[in-house]
Each structure stands twice: as C-alpha cells, then as structure tokens.
C-alpha cells in the first residue's frame, strides 16, 4: 500500500510537457504538488476524466496525456475502458488511484473494494497494464510506464488520505482552461 502524495511526488519528477488530467482528490493533491498550465482538472462530471483525456489524446497525438483517475470515478463510467481500448491512443497513460472509497464524497466504500481494475483494463483491450502496491517498484518502473506505447493502464494501490480541503472554486477557475487552451495551441 502506498500514499497517493508519495506516488505523485515520484511522478512529478518525470513530467515535462505532458497534459495531466486529474480528477477530484487526485486533482487537489496534484495541484498542490505540481501547479502548471498543462494540468486539466476534471471535476463535476464525475468519471469523465478518462473520456476527456481520450479526446485530448486523439486531438494531440504528438503529446502524452496522463490521467490521474480515482477508483470511484472510474466506476461511474466503466465503459470508458472499452472506448479507450477501441480508439487505442498510443499516447495515453491512465493511472487509477485505488483507495477503495469515494474519498471526495466522504469516504464511502466502493461497492466491491477488491475489484481488479488492471484485469478490467486488460480485458477491455489496453495495450499495457500494470498494478503497483509498493512505492519502490512504482519508482523503478514509472519512467518506463510513461514512455510505453499505449494505451497504458496502471493501478496504484493507495491508502485513504488525510482529510483534504476541497477548493473546487480554485480548480474550476476559467482562467485555467483559457491558459491550457493557449498552451495547447502552441506547436
């Protein structure tokens, strides 16, 4: 079992010009650790982070798109796995933080906490599938995971988090989207 913020700290070292799509609690933590223009916070339409990332991946095949999804979020839109496998974008890396609860909504448990997300992604047809429970092995392999020909899926088994302050107003600021759009229009 890992801590999400420790995983993100490691991930941060490898991130340069990727678009990072982060949802709910993952978005808050990622924004604290690595505020940058090329972050896309997916909040409100719960579960649609990976669908938005698919659109970004198809629209910008020259760029890597990294999704920081939640298990609760993915379960709201599980068919997304099949749509992504069908479109098969090589440049999409889909991390799912598996903390076995709907953390942003009060920590309610998932209906089936032991669901095998990596197995679901494999059966849906993702090109590469990983499952990490140890920080050391994540640290060793994350560089490889980020550069593989995708779509790549990786479950991160993480603990329930310390309480977060959900500053959605800040993440939802229109200026963030305007800046992201402008940055994506640059060659």
């Amino acid at each position: 079992m890992m801590n999400r913020d420790a995983c993100f700290e490691i991930l941060k070292r490898h991130i340069t010009d990727e678009v990072v799509v982060a949802s709910y609690s993952g978005a808050l933590e990622w924004n604290d650790l690595n505020p940058r223009t090329l972050n896309y916070f997916s909040i409100g339409a719960m579960g649609l982070g990976s669908s938005h990332a698919l659109g970004l991946a198809l629209g910008r095949p020259d760029r890597r798109i990294v999704v920081l999804d939640g298990d609760g979020s993915l379960l709201m839109n599980l068919g997304s796995l099949v749509s992504i496998a069908a479109a098969a974008p090589k440049n999409l890396v889909h991390f799912v933080c598996h903390n076995e609860c709907y953390e942003a909504n009060g920590g309610h448990p998932l209906p089936n906490p032991k669901v095998d997300f990596a197995g679901l992604a494999r059966s849906a047809g993702y090109a590469q599938v990983h499952d990490f429970a140890e920080l050391r092995s994540f640290e060793q392999q994350v560089g490889h995971v980020l550069t593989q020909s995708g779509p790549v899926f990786a479950t991160l088994h993480v603990q329930k988090n310390r309480p977060l302050v959900y500053k959605y107003d800040d993440l939802n600021k229109a200026s963030r989207r305007v800046a992201l759009k402008a940055a994506l229009q640059q060659p």
């Binding site: 032991k114 669901v115 095998d116 197995g119 494999r122 059966s123």
Partner: peptide
C-alpha cells in the same frame, strides 16, 4: 468473461 472475472 475476463471483465466479469475482474469485477468479482
């Protein structure tokens, strides 16, 4: 069948 297996 793999999806069902992974779902439990």
């Amino acid at each position: 069948a793999g999806l069902a297996q992974a779902a439990g």
